[in-house]
Amino acid sequence: MAKAAAKKTAPVASPSVERRPALAGRSTSATGVKVEVLPPAERISLRAPEASAAALSKALGVPLPKKPKTSASKAGRTALWLGPDEWLVIDEAGNDPLADCAKVSALHSAVGISHRNIAISVAGPAAEAAINSGCPQDLSLEAFPVGAASRTILGKAEIVLLRTAADAFRVECWRSFSDYVFTFLSEGARDAAG
């Protein structure tokens, strides 16, 4: 499956130009919550029928979750259930999930999107309230426990939300409008503190 293409897009050891992620280093704090842009990561959008899940899980080293709104995490690599045949795989350990999937012959589509998304951490006791300033989902621990993951809405932008701890979330969004998302979360944080 798609080996040829995947091989060629594998990351390069020493690029002669530097990576300039959007919003690099941005952060803001309010009482009870800190909003901060996370470092770059490797990511793929993984699509596959159920039958391929086992082989892909094995290759990725993290079990692809089968339950809606859940995620699985292992060794710096997190797989988020986004849809019945769709996962967002985020690698924060510097390894390339695209290359791992390229070895799998079972039916699937793996597409590199490392640069498509950026991640923003929202952490602190008021994190939930900050995100609820524009996200209509129930983010109580009962409805959205640690490890819960979901694509959803923040204001007028689409985000992917992952709860990493009782008081911490990872917000992923596309890079072009990440300033909107960051600014929205900052306003939400300011109000959540008030």
Binding site: P68, K69, G83, P84, P136, Q137, S150, R151, T152, I153
Partner: peptide
């Protein structure tokens, strides 16, 4: 029916 829960119309 895929997410198996009620979600807000905005989504």
């Amino acid at each position: 029916p895929y997410c198996e829960e009620e979600r807000p119309e905005l989504e």
